[in-house]
Write a protein that binds this DNA or RNA. Structure first.
Length: 287
DNA sequence: CAGAGCCCCTGGCGGC
DNA sequence: TGCCGCCAGGGGCTCT
């Protein structure tokens, strides 16, 4: 479900609510939720108890809360220290809970804060997870294989374009590969390809460098525009940390619009399968 | 190293 | 009512 704009929207809401907050207890109800944490569920819960949230970060679709011991004058440096990494998977949500509501059916874990507020991790399909990681250069060590996203200073569009040009797989599939550019998922890959008038079936090495750069520009544009309106919500499976939907669904040109007219030329949008994921495109104006 | 194929889950929906 | 297959914003692991 959530791609970069949705994850960033959630991160902002969680940061605003819990920056500076003291974790009184951490509870995990489904062992799968901490499957990346090799020392187990009990260790995970104990490790978080008593820590303070000092801030948050994000790379692509991964977000994290930075943590420190709540001791005067010895706050962890923003470049080092520990973090609670959260990946939302296909159906994960983080909710700021202040009203003592009844537990949700898919509540997988929660942080109880000293002020009685709670952070809930709700995840129907359990592809999401929580993990603890050491930070290195302000990024969790466990994310060394995830490339910078288009909003990071380290992102080099020229380098990324050159890498895309060396790939023999379909461009659509390449956009979903988080190891050279992160944050793009199935929705925004289709949208960026439509904007660039490119068929997702084209192989990376069939593009000109100019076209590759243009595509990356469209990726950044569509992510920016979606973030500005809180992301894309189709149903209750994506809402922000306060339970609010995003408004980008109405701006989508191709994703989920099979059979409907192309917003540029009126031709019916088609759906195909690329790399076991659905892909939506205009058969006339995407080549 | 890039790429392909498989696995991991919980539902909603339409067809029979 | 059931059963069955398909579909859904994710990524990891293993083998070639």
């Amino acid at each position: 479900m959530p791609e970069l704009p949705e994850v960033e929207t959630v991160r902002r809401g969680v940061d605003e609510a819990f920056r500076g907050g003291l974790i009184r207890a951490a509870e995990v109800y489904n062992p799968r939720t901490v499957r990346r944490h090799v020392t187990g569920i009990d260790d995970f819960q104990l490790s978080l108890k008593g820590l303070q949230v000092t801030g948050s970060g994000r790379r692509g679709k991964f977000m994290w809360l930075t943590l420190a011991e709540p001791v005067d004058g010895s706050q962890a440096s923003p470049q080092g220290g520990r973090a609670l990494v959260c990946h939302l998977g296909m159906s994960g949500q983080l909710h700021v809970v202040t009203d003592g509501r009844e537990a949700h059916k898919h509540l997988r874990g929660r942080l109880r804060f000293a002020d009685e507020r709670e952070l809930w991790f709700i995840d129907q399909r359990t592809f999401g997870y929580w993990d603890l990681a050491e930070l290195e250069d302000a990024v969790p060590k466990t994310m060394a294989h995830i490339a910078p996203d288009v909003f990071e200073a380290q992102f080099d569009a020229t380098l990324a374009a050159e890498r895309l040009l060396r790939r023999t797989i379909e461009v659509k599939k390449a956009l979903l590969d988080q190891t050279w550019i992160s944050g793009v998922g199935n929705i925004y890959a289709d949208e960026a390809l439509w904007r660039a008038r490119l068929r997702g079936r084209r192989s990376g090495d069939s593009l000109s460098k100019r076209k590759a750069l243009e595509l990356l520009g469209h990726v950044k544009d569509v992510l920016t525009e979606s973030l500005a309106v809180g992301g894309t919500s189709f149903d209750e499976l994506y809402v922000d940390a306060r339970g609010e939907a995003g408004y980008f669904a109405r701006e989508l040109a191709v994703y989920g619009r099979a059979g409907q007219p192309c917003k540029r030329c009126g031709t019916a949008i088609k759906r195909e399968v690329i790399g076991d994921r659905s892909a939506h495109y205009c058969p006339k104006c995407q080549r």
